[in-house]
Design a protein around this nucleic acid. Structure first.
Length: 281
DNA sequence: CCGCGATCCTGGGGGC
DNA sequence: TGCCCCCAGGATCGCG
């Protein structure tokens, strides 16, 4: 899936088209994605203004007029696209729906926003805004890695006594929210920590480096519009370009940019891990 | 509680 | 051109 930087890129792309705008009409073209959509979804969205477009972890949160929030998750292959006429245009023909456009929102300003998700691992739900943190998908999420609640003291506390590999710990959304396979691999490389190290065995200095590396890689990736491997697109349809900056992810057999040793691939918890045995210990 | 494997689904790419 | 196999950015569930 889009990880935090990709979701943040999508949120920023959607904001000008959606924030402060009313949803003129909604089309719901299937019953659900990973889970069934809420009852009468199209009717419940139509006519409502999007007051705020936010993000928590990998979820986009659209705060709607009337006290409900639309929760959007892009799964592994989800995209949000914007098409349609510029505001003020006389004609309001919208683009023909693409394959896998599951939900289409026609905004009052003429923009057409579509949720497209080939693999259908994504999700969309509605939940009362004032208790948004109690939604089952959001309850239990760890702190935002770019927020104040995430620092070395916190992370060290969560890793203490745990035997699972640090790679798996960082993938656990209850420990820190928003990281996925790409940015975990990249952050571990930057921090020079082996993905196989038992979580509880890291020195405080290593945890410090890890927190710094996680923050840095996320900030840089957001600035680059996220990473496009196969699915991620910015709302404009443009690719992200952080993938050109990967030091280890997807680079098995290539020289490590730090030490020149060949980047290795291993499988942990069924997922590929890319790392450099020369500089990660 | 902990850690891991299987699973949901489609599509793209490589090998034959 | 086609088929088969493998792989994929996620998150949940159930097992030992």
């Amino acid at each position: 899936m889009p990880e935090l930087p990709e979701v943040e890129t999508v949120r920023r792309g959607l904001a000008p088209a959606m924030e402060g705008q009313r949803i003129a009409e909604a089309q719901v073209r299937r019953e659900g994605l990973r889970w069934p959509f809420p009852e009468r979804l199209a009717e419940r969205l139509a006519g409502r203004r999007v007051e705020l477009l936010g993000r928590r972890s990998k979820y986009i949160l659209a705060g709607l007029e009337g006290g409900e929030t639309m929760i959007l998750h892009l799964g592994m292959s989800g995209r949000m696209t914007i098409s349609g006429q510029a505001p003020g245009s006389f004609h309001h023909e919208r683009a023909t729906p693409e394959t896998h456009d599951h939900v289409i929102l026609d905004m009052e300003n003429g923009a057409r926003v579509a949720l497209n998700d080939a693999r259908r691992f994504g999700a969309l739900d509605l939940w009362p805004t004032e208790m948004i943190e109690t939604h089952r998908l959001l309850a239990g999420l760890g702190p935002e890695p770019l927020g104040n609640g995430f620092d070395a003291a916190y992370l060290a506390g969560r890793l203490e006594g745990r035997k699972l590999p640090i790679k798996a710990a960082l993938m656990d959304q209850k420990i820190v929210a928003g990281l996925g396979n790409i940015y975990v691999c990249e952050a571990l490389h930057r921090a020079r920590i082996s993905p196989k190290r038992p979580s509880g065995g890291l020195s405080r200095a290593a945890v410090d480096r890890l927190v710094t590396a996680i923050r840095a890689v996320l900030v840089e990736a957001i600035e680059a519009g996220g990473s496009s491997i196969s699915d991620h697109r910015q709302t404009s349809g443009e690719l992200g370009y952080f993938q050109h900056t990967f030091r280890v992810y997807g680079r098995e057999g290539e020289p490590c940019p730090t030490c020149g040793r060949q980047v290795q691939r291993l499988v942990q918890s069924g997922r590929s891990t890319f790392w450099c045995p020369g500089c990660q210990h």
